[in-house]
Nucleic acid binder design. Structure first.
Length: 299
DNA sequence: CCTGAGCGG
């Protein structure tokens, strides 16, 4: 097995043909211009100084989310590739590609840490869904990184989401978000669900609100309103919070509830068991097992 | 195309 050479260029796609293609792809997709693109390019030293000043002026708080998750990475896309994609912004703190511990092969995703949250936000808006350099027919798949389990906030659950269907094919995360943000300032973000193979919109998506009252209002006020060329169909988003096994067969809280219920029943009946005899205990245990089995089958 | 799918040290 031949190991890929470290670098930004994939084996089948030479760098030579790249600059012109980059221009064309970026021009066609017309991503929103981030702030750093509107400034004249200074010298390297000045850039470093500006970065230092920027970080000093807006220090990132310790609990600020400023890391993006990136997926759909090809095996040859290493840290150097990701750096070449984002480092020009001078806002990247670190990049990391997650690899299999045994084989060392990329797991196909990684993390990009920025100097602060707003920098991460700008890059997320600018790059998500736009073509990746040096590869045909692939777009950046970016999202906010979830906090690792240890530092996850307990009160973070202010997440009120609506489902938006009947979307036109040209609606992006950004346009969907802005459609709602003009009326509902608490909009935290929007996501259009796309087909992983084609990259095309599946015609539906989700909008998240920080404020529950705005979520409720939007459910009625925005239903039938136009986003791009078509009216939206809005409904409540099904909660993805409940733990579901990979095949969606077992709902754990459901089972835990049944186990608790059955133990409670057994406990209550133990107090009167002397009047009915010890065989009742066996019957109750048998019934409890049956209930759990039935609960599993139903769910 | 009509209720997403991926997250380390």
């Amino acid at each position: 097995m031949m190991q890929p050479v470290a670098g930004v260029a994939p084996p089948p796609a030479p760098m030579a043909a790249q600059p012109a293609m980059d221009q064309q792809q970026w021009g066609m997709m017309a991503p929103p211009q981030p702030v750093w693109n509107q400034q004249p390019q200074p010298q390297q030293q000045q850039q470093q100084q500006q970065l230092a000043q920027y970080q000093a002026a807006q220090p990132a708080s310790a609990d600020e989310i400023r890391t993006l998750w990136i997926g759909d990475l090809a095996y040859w896309m290493e840290e150097s590739y990701l750096h070449s994609c984002f480092a020009q912004t001078n806002e990247v703190v670190s990049v990391k590609v997650i690899r299999n511990k045994q084989s060392g092969q990329s797991e196909g995703y990684g993390f990009i840490e920025f100097v602060n949250r707003s920098a991460a936000e700008r890059n997320l808006q600018a790059y998500n869904g736009t073509p990746m350099p040096n590869v045909a027919d692939q777009t950046f798949r970016l999202n906010w990184a979830t906090l690792s389990s240890g530092e996850r906030r307990s009160d973070e659950s202010s997440d009120f989401t609506i489902f938006v269907g009947d979307l036109a094919s040209d609606v992006t995360d950004y346009t969907l978000q802005e459609t709602f943000r003009v009326q509902y300032p608490s909009v935290k973000g929007a996501k259009v669900v796309t087909d992983r193979d084609t990259g095309r919109s599946k015609g539906y998506g989700f909008v998240r609100f920080a404020d529950e009252s705005e979520q409720v209002r939007a459910m009625t006020e925005m239903n039938g309103m136009f986003c791009s060329t078509r009216p939206m169909r809005i409904g409540p988003a099904t909660n993805k919070k409940s733990m579901v096994s990979s095949k969606g067969k077992i709902i754990y809280p459901f089972i835990i509830f049944y186990i608790w219920l059955n133990f409670s029943l057994v406990g209550c009946c133990l107090s009167i068991v002397e009047f009915y005899g010890k065989w009742l205990i066996l019957i109750l245990i048998y019934a409890s097992v049956c209930w759990v089995v039935i609960a599993c089958e139903i769910s």
